[in-house]
Design a protein around this nucleic acid. Sequence first.
DNA 1: CACGTATATACGTTCATGCGTATATACGGT
DNA 2: ACCGTATATACGCATGAACGTATATACGTG
Lengths: 117, 117
Amino acid sequence: MESIFAILAEPTRRAILLLLLAQARSVGEIERELKLPQPTVSKHLRVLRDAGFVEAGVDAQRRLYRLRPEPLQSLDEWLAPFRQFWSVQVDALERHLDRREAVGGAREGVAPRMVAR
Amino acid sequence: MESIFAILAEPTRRAILLLLLAQARSVGEIERELKLPQPTVSKHLRVLRDAGFVEAGVDAQRRLYRLRPEPLQSLDEWLAPFRQFWSVQVDALERHLDRREAVGGAREGVAPRMVAR
DNA sequence: CACGTATATACGTTCATGCGTATATACGGT
DNA sequence: ACCGTATATACGCATGAACGTATATACGTG
């Protein structure tokens, strides 16, 4: 199951991650909230755990699964160079609008934006 | 091929996107740079085009493929709520370090960080 | 120590997807 | 019109991943 992208390709797994973002949960809780058979949940959690997306704490028979940030941060890093790209698009649009509105515009309230390497 | 995640699950497709990020390219150029058979490239481009990741311009027999931002922006939006999450982690670490170092620390040189929408 | 609860794993089946090979389509040049 | 180049598509195959069902393991309680 190579990449983090392959892991996230599964809708159920993304749903689980969103659930765990709110708070840590047991397998049974996830099972009920997503209305999925228990083995399905366990198997997806296994995949998520192997990939480092979640970790499990032991509470007697319960396993409390909680989110881990690293893999999603990796995704964020992969995305970073592309973010530049669409910033350029927005810049072009803004320049266009600036030109249309007036030449001495203040450009206030615009969040700073990364542009190049 | 439902989601953008499924599209990105394929390593070759991610490689193509990175190539096109630098500049628009023809099928043949991609073929040579990635050393892949031509049908493979064409088929992946088809998938990427159907999902809106790329668009094709016509130059006689050549097709110039260029990147489109929207799907990657969607990915960015999906990621947004998680970003908050790991900010909290970093914040907690920083508070910890601040406490250890000294109470009146300056906290200079720390890049600003997005926290919430 | 038997039983119920909670979770994990094994096994077989099904279905999608990526690939290779072959072929179709389109265009420019001669 | 013919040929070479550039790209797209069709077809068959193989692999892998998700699922359902069944079963194993672990823990707490009476």
